[in-house]
């Protein structure tokens, strides 16, 4: 494994010919390599978890729309799905979970339960990780259509507005503002590797509700 990288077995008995000190040095090097591999593995595991859980969540959400409200994406899941959000122009979508507590954000975007349900009066907020589910948020342009399907089957169309950058505690989002708004938030800058205080926010305004629920995105019916 790790040690193979550095000790390509040039001649037989290579290890046997090492002195004690050299063995220790080699072991340390091997350990460092192993730690590196573990970290890489963990990082990719997080990303894989985010992807796989979305696939499972999508399946559960479909079932929920078809009248099976108790379905769980996996037996030990301890959260609820809330909605599905999609951006048809760039062909992206994600299942939104209820509440951003604990680990929920690792599995999908989360609707902050302190804000109104998307589509209701007020400004509701959906947040997700910039390096997984909301990686595509930077591609959402002003004027883009955002489609949000709630668990109760109602489907709302939002028009994305300008995006902006703000500190996490100075978001300028007022949950009880008048009108029907949706704010999508993720961390900023997108390519940073550390966690930071800045957030990238896309404000969107409700433009209408799509009545029946055919499972395709059709034209706007106002």
């Amino acid at each position: 494994m790790a040690a193979d990288n550095e000790t390509p077995e040039p001649h037989q008995g290579f290890l046997a010919r090492l002195s004690a000190a050299e063995t220790i040095v080699l072991a340390i090097i091997a350990l460092i390599a192993l730690a590196g591999l573990l970290l890489i593995g963990k990082g990719f595991y997080m990303k894989a978890k985010a992807e796989v859980s979305q696939v499972l969540l999508k399946r559960t959400f479909e079932a929920q729309l078809h009248g099976n409200p108790d379905g769980k994406p996996w037996p030990w899941a301890d959260f609820q799905t809330a909605a599905e959000i999609s951006a048809p122009r760039i062909n992206r979508s994600a299942i939104v979970l209820e509440g951003a507590s604990g680990e929920a954000l690792a599995f999908g975007p989360a609707w902050l339960t302190t804000t109104p349900l998307p589509g209701n009066e007020g400004t509701s907020v959906i947040a997700a990780h910039r390096d997984t589910h909301f990686r595509w948020l930077k591609d959402v342009n002003p004027g883009d259509l955002l489609v949000l399907t709630r668990k109760d089957g109602r489907r709302f169309l939002f028009r994305a507005g300008e995006s902006r950058v703000a500190r996490w505690d100075e978001s300028g989002i007022n949950a009880s503002a008048s009108g029907h708004h949706l704010a999508l938030a993720t961390c900023w800058p997108f390519d940073a590797i550390e966690q930071g205080p800045m957030r990238y926010i896309v404000d969107a305004e409700l433009i209408g509700e799509q009545r029946p629920v055919p499972l395709t995105t059709g034209s706007i019916s106002k």
Partner: peptide, 11 residues
């Protein structure tokens, strides 16, 4: 104002 959660993983 709504405070936004941390949305960057360490991945």
């Amino acid at each position: 104002q709504v405070a936004l959660p941390q949305t960057a993983t360490e991945a």
